[in-house]
């Protein structure tokens, strides 16, 4: 599956990563060689093979519905880039 520059731009947008125009070709080259590498998989017949998401055959454990976390706003917001009146600030969003 050959990629082109537009694909790279589209993927970068989905991933919300800015890529300078001058770097697109390099990423295109990298991604192409990685995809060539992974294309080996297509040669394997995996019909009827159940995908494996978790290495252990375990099931989800359940947590009791009890409050264990108290207000830690002050501490948690110390590492925030921009906070006012307890709210995290981001550039204005229009719905």
């Amino acid at each position: 599956m050959a990629l082109d520059r537009q694909d790279v731009e589209k993927i970068a947008h989905l991933a919300r990563i800015n890529i300078d125009k001058k770097d697109i070709n390099e990423y295109l080259g990298n991604l192409t060689s990685i995809l060539d590498l992974v294309d080996q998989m297509q040669r394997v017949d995996t019909q009827n093979v159940e995908p494996l998401s978790h290495p252990l055959d375990a099931i989800q454990r359940l947590r009791a519905d009890d409050i264990t976390e108290s207000n830690q706003r002050e501490q948690l917001q110390q590492v925030a880039p921009a906070v006012e009146e307890g709210l995290f600030l981001v550039p204005k969003v229009i719905d």
């Binding site: 599956m1 990629l3 694909d7 993927i11 989905l14 991933a15 991604l31 995809l35 992974v38 998989m41 297509q42 394997v44 995996t46 093979v49 159940e50 995908p51 494996l52 998401s53």
Partner: peptide, 21 residues
């Protein structure tokens, strides 16, 4: 991102998980 994107999931992610098995 590419491997999970629409139209490629089966060929990449699902395939990889099958090979993982």
């Amino acid at each position: 991102t590419y491997a999970l994107s629409e139209g490629f999931y089966d060929a990449y992610y699902k395939k990889a998980q099958q090979i993982r098995r």
